[in-house]
C-alpha cells in the first residue's frame, strides 16, 4: 500500500481517457442522439399535422360532396323543366304545322274541286249540246238553245 509513481501514471492515463472520450466518443454519440430526438419530434409533429390535415380534408370533401349533390339536383331540375318546355314547344309547333298542312291541303283540294267542276261544267255543256243536237236534229236553233243549255250546265 505504498504511494508511488502509479499515482501519477494513473492520473495521466485518466486524463488521456477523458480526452479520448470527449474527442471521439461523447460528441459523436450525443449528436446522433440529439439528431434522432429532433427527428422523432419532427415526425410526431408531422403526424399531428397530418391528422389535422386529414380532418380538414374530410370536412372539405364532405362539403364538396354536398355542394355537388345540390348542384346536380339543380341541374336535373333545370333539365326537366327544359325538357318539358321543349316538349310543349314541339307540341305547339306540331299542332301549328299540322293545321297549316291541313289548311294548305284543304285549299288545294278546294282548288282541285273547282278546277274539276270547271272542266266538268265545260264538258257537260258540250256533251249536252251534242246530245241535244243529235236528239233534236236540225229543229233546234243553236243560237236559241245554247243559252238554255249553258244555264243548265251552270246549274250543275
Amino acid at each position: 500500500m505504498n504511494i508511488n509513481l502509479t499515482l501519477i501514471g494513473q492520473s495521466i492515463t485518466f486524463l488521456a481517457f477523458v480526452w479520448f472520450c470527449k474527442a471521439f466518443v461523447w460528441t459523436a454519440i450525443r449528436n446522433a442522439m440529439d439528431e434522432r430526438e429532433a427527428q422523432i419530434a419532427d415526425g410526431l409533429e408531422a403526424a399531428d399535422r397530418a391528422g389535422k390535415d386529414l380532418e380538414l380534408a374530410q370536412e372539405k370533401a364532405t362539403q364538396q360532396l354536398r355542394e355537388a349533390k345540390q348542384e346536380a339536383a339543380a341541374i336535373i331540375d333545370a333539365a326537366n323543366k327544359r325538357a318539358n318546355q321543349i316538349v310543349d314547344e314541339a307540341k305547339t309547333a306540331a299542332h301549328e304545322e299540322g293545321d297549316r298542312i291541313k289548311a294548305a291541303a284543304k285549299a288545294e283540294i278546294d282548288q282541285e274541286v273547282n278546277r274539276a267542276k270547271e272542266a266538268l261544267r265545260s264538258q257537260v255543256a258540250g256533251l249536252a249540246l251534242a246530245g241535244a243536237e243529235q236528239v233534236l236534229e236540225a229543229s233546234i236553233d243553236e243560237g236559241a238553245h245554247k243559252a238554255l243549255v249553258e244555264k243548265l250546265a251552270a246549274g250543275l
Partner: peptide, 10 residues
Amino acid sequence: PNITLGMAFT
C-alpha cells in the same frame, strides 16, 4: 490507493 487517489487528485 494509487489508482483511486490518482483519479481523485486528477
